[in-house]
Design a protein around this nucleic acid. Structure first.
Lengths: 127, 127
DNA sequence: GTGGATGCAAACTCTTTGCACCTTG
DNA sequence: CAAGGTGCAAAGAGTTTGCATCCAC
């Protein structure tokens, strides 16, 4: 039973995610990782992501109506604010007990997702 | 300038949505609407949904990692609780100002989405 | 009768998979 | 050198679109 190998492809994908300031799409990861490993294919990116997701090294970010994005896991609990002007995503922390109040009697809350949409501070300034 | 026509297809789709107890997928709408209009095609369902979305007669519900679902609009602001045991979706109301606290300084909040995941009361009872 | 609506199939996008080849350990 | 990884192309799932036909008005 031979475990996992260290390939240039996987290293490139992880490196891209480490340097990302916001969650990236599979396409975005491919584009950036190909600068280091030009032969990298989209299929391999998906395969690597699947492995990393299972190991919980990366996490998926699913904005409603958008293609999934990926970020390194272990950043603690957070949500996202999406600026409708510039499209940037900002991580937003803290949300506990705010959510608990929504849960109906007898329901057991295990998890939640919150997405905020609006205008970020720099776009708001330009208005 | 001739407006919109009243077709059996559109009527069937609307009727299905009116009788739905939870948001339906495009496939689910097709299946149910075909009981009334057997020749209805998936393409037409999508076209009708597009029109109804533009008129804001229906709204999209996008659970993370799932195919989009559709429900009649005008049910007021609400979110969803998804039971991981039985897969049911429950509408959850009320959430104002809870959310405001998350918004960073200088950001303008326009909209938000909240999804809750866990065990519903009837599944919790069986545990 | 005429133009919007429909059905079918082809096209598209995103993701997964089969298979031969390559590369790591 | 053996097994896992990779690249490519084909296959899938979900949605959109082109086009000839249909039918509501």
């Amino acid at each position: 039973m031979m475990s996992e190998r260290n390939t240039r492809q996987k290293a490139a994908v992880v490196r891209v995610l480490e340097h990302a300031s916001a969650p990236l799409t599979a396409q975005g990861i491919l584009a950036k990782a190909q600068k280091r490993v030009p032969t990298l294919s989209q299929a391999t990116v998906y395969r690597i992501l699947k492995v990393l997701l299972k190991k919980e090294v990366v996490a998926t970010v699913q904005l409603p109506g958008e293609v999934p994005r990926y970020e390194l896991a272990g950043k603690g609990h957070h949500h996202f604010f999406r600026c409708r002007q510039c499209g940037s995503m900002y991580a937003v922390g803290g949300c506990t007990d705010l959510i608990e109040g929504l849960v109906p009697q007898g329901f057991r809350l295990e998890d939640h997702e919150v997405f905020l949409f609006g205008t970020c501070s720099s776009c708001a300034r330009d208005t």
